[in-house]
Each structure stands twice: as C-alpha cells, then as structure tokens.
C-alpha cells in the first residue's frame, strides 16, 4: 500500500472484497440450495388454498424468490379472475 493511499484513507483490499463476496454467496448456497427447491411445492399449496375461495387457474399464480443485497424477497403474484367472469 503506497504512502498516498495511506493518507487518503485505506481502500478495501481485493482480498477483503473476495471474503465478503464468498460469505454472501455461501450463505445462499448452503443447505442444499433450499431456495428454488420449495417454490414449486409452495406454489401448488397456495393454489389449493386460494382455490377454496376463488376460482383460479394454477397458471395465475407466480412465485419467485429475489435477492436484493442481503435481503431475500419472496414475491407471490396472483392474478384474480375478472369480476364479470366470476359473476357469470
């Protein structure tokens, strides 16, 4: 590390960037990649529950898992049938 960078305040070394990246990715990969595994089952069960109340198509539910920085976002999108259809 040069004298100049010492004066300007030390920047993160590439080794510590590597460690941070590894720790983040391995948290997600450990446990047999649990993320994608349970999504189909979750989707199936959601369809079952919602079908008890509303008449929907299994294709109208979309489940996805997103990562934003260190946050995991589970997104469930349900397309409800149109009012007119359900009245008919």
């Amino acid at each position: 590390m040069s004298f100049l960078s010492f004066l300007l305040g030390s920047k993160k070394t590439s080794a510590s960037v590597a460690k941070d990246r590894l720790q983040l990715i391995l948290i997600n990969e450990r446990g047999g990649g649990r993320g994608p595994d349970y999504l189909p089952q979750l989707q199936k069960e959601l369809v079952e529950v919602i079908s008890r109340y509303v008449n929907i198509n299994p294709d109208d539910i979309k489940v996805s898992l997103d990562r934003q920085d260190s946050l995991e976002v589970l997104e469930v999108k349900i397309e409800m049938p149109q009012q007119a259809e359900s009245n008919a």
């Binding site: 590390m1 070394t13 590439s14 080794a15 510590s16 590597a18 460690k19 590894l22 391995l26």
Partner: peptide, 16 residues
C-alpha cells in the same frame, strides 16, 4: 500477496 491484501488469508478461509 496475503500481507498486501491481494490474496485471501488462511484465517479468512478458515472463517468461511
């Protein structure tokens, strides 16, 4: 290279 911060140290890898 470890002491220059260019390579993961053995402590880093043990931690992980």
């Amino acid at each position: 290279r470890v002491s220059d911060g260019e390579m993961l140290s053995l402590q880093d890898i043990e931690d992980i």
